[in-house]
């Protein structure tokens, strides 16, 4: 949508120069986050997250596999994301786009680096470990998939239950063991327009941004970062945004598990 996006972009920039956003949010104000947890009974964990009009669902399946040879005493955690065509007129069919792969990897890194799941607890016996597969589906796109997907993946992990493994078989009817979560991470994604920075861009803002940065924290320390798009951030800006990101952790994590 070339012409229209350029036009919206110009409008967003000129409004930001006066400190305004078109949806009348403050620059560092997130849209409302709504989490519905444990909504699918076939999955071992699940959550649906709405961040404004962005709508994502995460489902978690547990399987028993051989451990990786370099980590024989640890289970696995794999996070994937799919941009469903239904989510936007701009999403195309075919293999995952670079954007979808980046999204999945950034969410995955944050949760992994955050040590959210104790992978050693997923060890069953020599040659057998639990693997957790978290698949995130984007149902409706209105920007900031990074933060919405991190909340969804985290929330699905928080209500995940491990099926019982005995005598070489997984009994999915017996899932009484709650997955232990040892740390909760949240991410905050900022966009930069000229010298103006905002938190939690909607789809129109994302179209127009010069630069983007996702900062994942556990409320105390930084666990992952990813800068995107052509533009740049200064060191001072990054430091300031880290401070904001750490402060937002408590509020965002309080929405999880509801």
């Amino acid at each position: 949508m070339g012409g229209i996006n350029e036009l919206k972009g110009a409008y967003i920039r000129s409004a930001l120069n006066e400190g305004k956003r078109l949806d009348s949010r403050e620059v560092f104000e997130m849209r409302e986050i709504k989490v519905e947890s444990d909504i699918l009974s076939n999955a071992e964990g699940s959550a649906r997250v709405k961040l404004g009009d962005t709508d994502v669902i995460a489902g978690l399946k547990v399987v028993v596999e051989e451990p990786h040879s370099d980590t024989p005493k640890e289970g696995n955690l794999v996070v994937s994301a799919e941009l469903l065509q239904m989510a936007s007129a701009d999403f195309e069919s075919g293999p995952p786009s670079p954007a979808a792969i980046e999204l999945a990897r950034v969410v995955d890194r944050g949760i992994r680096a955050g040590n959210c799941v104790n992978l050693e607890r997923l060890f069953i016996e020599d040659g057998k470990v639990y693997s957790l597969y978290v698949d995130i589906y984007v149902l409706d796109y209105d920007g900031n998939l990074f933060d919405a997907c991190t909340v969804a993946a985290m929330s699905a992990l928080m209500n995940a239950r491990l099926p019982k493994y005995a005598n070489g078989e997984l009994d999915r009817k017996d899932r009484n063991t709650q997955l232990e979560i040892q740390n909760v991470v949240t991410s905050t994604t900022f966009g930069k327009f000229g010298d103006n920075i905002v938190l939690d861009m909607n789809a129109d803002e994302e179209q127009a941004a010069d630069a983007r940065i996702t900062i994942t924290t556990d409320g105390k320390t930084v666990r992952a970062m990813q800068k995107g798009l052509k533009g740049h951030f200064t060191i001072d800006e990054v430091e300031r945004l880290i401070g904001i990101s750490i402060k937002k952790n408590a509020d965002i994590s309080s929405r999880m598990g509801k």
Binding site: N42, K61, S80, Y133, D135, Y137
Partner: peptide, 13 residues
């Protein structure tokens, strides 16, 4: 079908 849609194994996307 979503990879998490079934009670059984993790499906393929």
């Amino acid at each position: 079908m979503a990879p998490f849609s079934s009670l059984e194994e993790h499906g393929r996307a």
